[in-house]
Amino acid sequence: MKIGIKDIEYIATLSRIELSDTEKEMYVHQIDDILSYIEKLNKLNTEKVKPVTHTVNINNVFREDRLETSTPLEVVLLNAPSKMGAFFKVPKVIE
C-alpha cells in the first residue's frame, strides 16, 4: 500500500471534506489503486524535461485598465445561502 488511513485523514482535512470510517476504508483502497497506476511515470527519466502547464503559447495578457459596470450587489447576493444587508452571513470566524 502506498497510503494508509492516516494519509486519507490528512488529505481529507486539506480538502475540507469529512469522511465516515466506511468512506475512509473505500477511498484508501481506490486512491491507492490509482496512485499505484500513476507509478508508471517513474519509468521515464525526465531530469532534462521542462514542465508544461499551458500548451498554447500564451504569455502575459495585457489590456486597457478601464472602468466597466459590474454585477449589481443585490444580484450577486441573490444566490447567497445566508445574507444580512450588503453582506454574506457566515458563522463566527474569530473565537
Binding site: 475540507r16 450577486v76 444566490n79 447567497a80 445561502p81 445566508s82 454574506f88 457566515v90 458563522p91 473565537e95
Partner: peptide
C-alpha cells in the same frame, strides 16, 4: 457554502461549515 450553492445546517463554526 458562503457565496452561492448549498450550505449545511447547524454548524459549530466556519471550518465545520
Amino acid at each position: 457554502g458562503v457565496k452561492y450553492g448549498y450550505r449545511t445546517n447547524d454548524v459549530r463554526g466556519i471550518i465545520d461549515m
